[in-house]
Each structure stands twice: as structure tokens, then as C-alpha cells.
Design a protein around this nucleic acid. Structure first.
Lengths: 134, 134
DNA sequence: CGTTACGCTTACGTCTGCGTCAAGCTGACT
DNA sequence: AGTCAGCTTGACGCAGACGTAAGCGTAACG
């Protein structure tokens, strides 16, 4: 069962990143492409990891944070204390994410209100013939 | 009605930032402390702005983005084209935040599932006398 | 009145997350 | 064989967001 390996170019096209980015992630040990000669070939595992990396980034996690989290998703990890640590890390992240979501919801409501207010204000400024301040 | 002004140290203690950070924000025109001699004194307005700055940062917005947005919350702004611009910017940010929240919700669900899975796995690893793999 | 504490400015240092050459190697056409 | 695209490894560059150290002013305390 020969696994499906894809080139760096294909990776870039599919996930909309640059080669530099992929090499950088490899250097930081976030990805582990195999080699055919000197050239990189990315496995399914790399692709799954890249998806998680990109998502993590959107949430503002650092690459180093993400690297640690990735171990959690990694089935190949059979070491108990390490697994436990990753599990704890995951729980912390989860808590972070929940907190962030809640805060985000608050901020969204506030911003919506501000925008509504601002819209009215703009309306009055552009056309001052309303039932405005006496 | 003398407004309550607080020193840089008090600001730091209350909002858990360094003096360097506050000076930096002033240099970037995000805060406008008044001076007593050479020393900075922060107004209520500065404090409100700082709260928004810190929150914006937690959502991954740049200081420059935040600076623009702050005008929206700022009553003192009476300039029509500037207000309009700030309003548009606010709408974009709002869309960003909504998207971010939705994605975050997805990720939370996934991470919860992963953690559940991981918890079971850890249980089995620690105590292998279950109805596990034959 | 000395010293300790805090604040100010100026300026260079650092870390992250890549961008951007430079220089060389390969493999595939032609 | 030539050459051209595409890959490789360095190595340096850069913007954002501060950290940190140097050198100075000042205010309060014992």
C-alpha cells in the first residue's frame, strides 16, 4: 500500500502557502516530509498537520504552541507521560478557546451596538433635518 | 470636576502591562496621557482605550488596526469622512470577528472530541484490563 | 544632603514568521 | 549537449511589538 505522496508545489497549491512556509515549518519540526533524493514529498500526515497548523494560526496560537498540540492529534505517540502532558495542554487550550469565544461574543455585541450608533450619527451628519437635539 | 488621573505605575498594576508598553502605545498614538512636568498621567479615556486595545490584541488585531477602530468608540470625533472610514473598518472587523468565532466554535467541538478520545486512550494505557482489543 | 526610587528619552536588541535573494543541483525537453 | 523550470540549502532582511540598558532629571525619605 504505497501512500500517496505529493510535491511541495502541490502542497502549496492545495493549501495556499508558499514553499518557504513549508520549509520553515519543516525546520521548526512541524512537518516531516520524506525525501526522494533531495526533494520533499509530503505525506497524508503532513497534510493533516498543515491543516491544523493553519487553523491554529488563525486563532492566534504561536507555531510553538501548535507544535505541542500536534502531538495530541498524533496517533503514533505511545508514550504515557508525554501523552498525559499533551492531554493537559489540550485541555488548557480548550479552556483558552472557550474563553476567547465568549469574549469574542461580547465584543461582537458591543461592536454591533457601536456600529448602529455610528450609523445613526452618520445619517444625522449627512442630513441634519431630522427630529434631532432641540 | 477634576478628572481622576492615574500614574503609569498604577496603570501597569491595574492592567498588567509594562511601562514600556504604555509609552509605546503613546508613541503609536493609541493613548494620550497628559503631562505633569515630564510625567504621564492617564485619563479615564486612556483607560477605556487600553481595555479595548488589550482585547483587540487578544483577537489578533494589529495595533494599527486597533488604532483606527478606536476612533469609532471615540465621541470626540466629528469629522465625516473619517467617521465614515472608521465605520467601514468597523464593519470589516465585525465580519472578521464573526468568522473567527464560527471557526472557533468548530475547532472547539473538534478539540473536545479529540480530548475525549485521548482520555479514553489514556485510561486504557494506565489500566489495560478492560474490554479492549483482543 | 546623600541616596534610593521612580520616571523620562534615546537607542539598540530580540523574537516570530516568514520574504527574498544567491548559488548550485537535478531532470526533462529540444 | 544546451537550457530551462523547479527544487535545494544557506543567509540576510524585515515588520510588529515590545525588552532592555544607558544616561539623565527629580522627588521624597531619613
Amino acid at each position: 500500500m504505497t501512500e500517496k505522496l505529493i510535491t511541495i508545489r502541490e502542497m502549496c497549491d492545495v493549501y495556499d502557502v508558499t514553499p518557504r512556509t513549508l520549509r520553515f515549518y519543516e525546520a521548526k519540526e512541524l512537518l516531516f516530509p520524506v525525501r526522494q533524493g533531495t526533494r520533499r514529498l509530503f505525506t497524508k500526515r503532513d497534510q493533516a498537520r498543515l491543516k491544523l497548523i493553519l487553523r491554529g494560526k488563525r486563532f492566534g496560537f504561536s507555531l510553538e504552541d501548535i507544535r505541542q498540540l500536534l502531538d495530541l492529534y498524533d496517533t503514533s505517540n505511545q508514550n504515557l507521560p508525554q501523552m498525559t502532558r499533551a492531554f493537559e495542554l489540550g485541555q488548557e487550550r480548550l479552556a483558552d478557546m472557550v474563553r476567547q469565544r465568549d469574549e469574542l461574543n461580547e465584543a461582537i455585541v458591543e461592536l454591533e451596538q457601536q456600529l448602529e450608533w455610528g450609523e445613526q450619527l452618520l445619517g444625522n451628519m449627512r442630513n441634519p433635518n431630522s427630529a434631532a437635539a432641540e
